[in-house]
Simulated scan of single mutants.
Amino acid sequence: MAKIVLETRGLTKRFGSVTPLDGIDMQVEVGEWVAIMGPSGSGKTTMLNILSCLDTPSEGEYILDGVATATLSEKERVTVRREKIGLVFQQFHLVPYLTALENVMLAQYYHSMIDRNDAEEVLTRVGLGHRIGHLPSQLSGGEQQRVCIARALINQPAIILADEPTGNLDEANEGIVLDFFKELHAEGRTIVLVTHNPELATFADRVVRLQHGRIARNA
């Protein structure tokens, strides 16, 4: 029987009179690739923020690897993000005055395990071994996104959460990034990916469609 690594029960999020998530029940198994789709305003990014412990629900439960996240202190939530989750954003969030290598090593620093060789190795894996000394402004959008993926992978997280990871990329770089996600899936990583791209979603094991903050049952 497959192990459930992410589970939400009645997950609800309110911002004043706005309810972007309304009673979401969802389970994700270890090693599963789930694509979350839906129109703008359907709650996709809010959902990912809660799954990544960047935000908390107003009501309901979020259980991560058997632990009810509501019981965690903020310090414990930070530790969970560092040790279990790799985050990839549409907006790259790279430190502009740090090189590609230093941006990846910064993630190691927060994990208290700095290893230059490991950082170089993961950048080489994403095809940037020759660009490790370049600043983000000296890299193309596709290269910056690959630095983000390297940063997400450096601490060997079991779970990858990605928010529109190909949203700002041209077709060639989109294909490169997609290949990385396919490799990660083949390695047994759990992937939850928010996307508008139906082609990207076809590679997922399952698609969860959100509509008005709820799972579309006819999906």
Results as ranks from 00 to 15, higher is better:
residue 87 L to P: 02
residue 13 K to R: 10
residue 204 A to T: 13
residue 134 H to K: 01
residue 68 A to P: 11
residue 8 T to E: 05
residue 119 A to R: 01
residue 5 V to A: 06
residue 33 W to R: 10
residue 116 R to H: 10
residue 47 M to H: 11
residue 28 V to T: 00
residue 45 T to D: 11
residue 25 D to S: 05
residue 158 A to K: 13
residue 210 L to F: 06
residue 188 G to A: 13
residue 2 A to C: 07
residue 72 L to A: 11
residue 45 T to E: 08
residue 150 A to K: 02
residue 112 S to A: 14
residue 148 C to K: 02
residue 160 I to F: 02
residue 157 P to G: 13
residue 187 E to H: 00
residue 208 V to C: 03
residue 51 L to N: 01
residue 159 I to L: 15
residue 50 I to H: 00
residue 116 R to S: 14
residue 93 H to K: 12
residue 174 E to P: 06
residue 82 R to H: 07
residue 44 K to G: 09
residue 163 D to S: 01
residue 33 W to I: 07
residue 183 E to H: 01
residue 83 E to R: 14
residue 201 A to D: 07
residue 104 V to W: 02
residue 9 R to M: 09
residue 124 T to V: 00
residue 99 T to S: 13
residue 133 G to D: 06
residue 122 V to R: 00
residue 218 N to L: 08
residue 68 A to T: 08
residue 181 F to L: 11
residue 4 I to K: 07
residue 93 H to Y: 12
residue 207 V to H: 02
residue 66 G to W: 09
residue 14 R to L: 12
residue 115 D to H: 10
residue 195 T to D: 10
residue 202 T to L: 11
residue 114 I to K: 08
residue 100 A to D: 07
residue 64 L to S: 10
residue 176 I to G: 03
residue 59 E to R: 15
residue 17 S to M: 14
residue 62 Y to D: 09
residue 46 T to Q: 07
residue 76 E to L: 05
residue 186 A to H: 04
residue 164 E to H: 06
residue 24 I to N: 03
residue 61 E to D: 14
residue 203 F to H: 15
residue 137 S to F: 02
residue 150 A to T: 04
residue 43 G to M: 10
residue 12 T to M: 15
residue 195 T to P: 04
residue 85 I to V: 15
residue 68 A to H: 07
residue 109 Y to K: 15
residue 17 S to C: 04
residue 100 A to N: 00
residue 126 V to L: 05
residue 15 F to R: 10
